[in-house]
């Protein structure tokens, strides 16, 4: 069912027959180079990449340039709006903690969760999907049936259930999210693998006696990377969103650590008296999500130009 929805994105109108694209492609460019050129021609994607790099650099190095610490309290400035002289560039919260530092440190967590959890799902998904697709037959149908069943489970709630038992830990979030997101990845890789298996270069490798392991590693996985990268890019914002969601509800990252979700939750409670509190994390989160979505869409168009 989810597959259908995702299928929709990739099925959109094929206005331009394939051959024309091929004819038209600049001679001597590999498909990856062509995709890269197309991506660079996509203004929204390029702007997003630049913005995202700025945000990442800011989150990693920004706190170093502030005199304030994550939980240091400025008794003279409690709940003040942004103010440059006191180096509270984003203002302070009602406890006198500097929001610039808290927002950027929160960004570190959010970005890290996004990347790590996606990486986990990426690895599990590729391995599982390529094995299922390559093995085919009964193995394949059992492995994919298992994925189908997991798909139907309300994972969000299991994660919450887990947090009830194991307490609220950031590691739990990594594992839980990574474990959920690999499902779609596995489906995509399996589909690709099934069609790759029929192709001549895989046949050739098999005839020359290459081992299954090396066929999967050399021929299958590299050729499934395109769609997987697109999906991975679109997974990162989902994961960040999920983490913020949990943190917002008080089930994710815990004080004194901060994440954008935590800060938004705190800010939302004092929105009338101190609107800047919710503003900086909300804007950072929204911009990051926008950028990641635009990059994902741009990559998809670039790697699969039929879709435009």
């Amino acid at each position: 069912m989810l597959g259908l929805i995702q299928g929709l994105n990739t099925k959109m109108s094929a206005l331009i027959p394939n051959e024309i694209i091929a004819d038209n492609a600049v001679v001597g460019l590999s498909p990856w180079q062509q995709a890269w050129r197309r991506l660079l021609n996509n203004k929204a994607a390029v702007v997003s990449i630049v913005l995202l790099v700025i945000i990442a650099v800011l989150c990693i190095f920004g706190p170093l340039f502030s005199p304030w610490e994550l939980d240091s309290v400025d008794w003279d400035n409690m709940g003040t709006p942004p103010h440059l002289q006191s180096h509270h560039y984003f203002g302070t919260d009602s406890n006198g903690r500097d929001l610039f530092v808290r927002t950027l440190e929160g960004g570190r967590i959010s970005l890290m969760v996004g990347l790590l959890a996606t990486a986990v799902s990426f690895i599990i998904g590729i391995i599982y999907g390529s094995i299922a697709g390559y093995a085919g037959g009964k193995t394949d149908s059992i492995m994919m049936r298992f994925v189908d069943v997991l798909y139907a489970l309300p994972f969000m709630f299991f994660v919450i259930l887990l947090t009830v038992y194991f307490g609220r830990s950031i590691w739990l979030i990594f594992i839980a999210i990574g474990a959920v997101e690999w499902l779609t990845m596995a489906r995509i890789v399996r589909g690709q693998t099934l069609s790759l298996k029929q192709r001549s270069f895989v046949e050739a490798a098999r005839v020359t006696g290459a081992s299954h392991y090396s066929i999967i590693k050399r021929h299958i996985i590299p050729n499934t990377l395109g769609p997987v990268i697109v999906y991975a890019t679109l997974t990162v914002p989902q994961v960040i969103l999920f983490e913020s969601f949990l943190s917002f509800l008080g089930l994710g990252v815990q004080e004194p650590m901060s994440s954008w979700g935590v800060l938004i939750a705190e800010g939302a409670q004092q929105m009338e008296s101190a609107p800047w509190m919710v503003l900086s994390p909300a804007i950072m989160l929204a911009v990051t999500l926008f950028c990641l979505n635009f990059i994902g869409d741009g990559l998809r168009d670039a790697l699969d130009p039929k879709d435009r």
Partner: peptide
């Protein structure tokens, strides 16, 4: 795109 990107816990406040 905006509707999909802005989380509900930001939109609500």
């Amino acid at each position: 795109m905006t509707g999909i990107t802005i989380p509900n816990f930001v939109m609500a406040p």
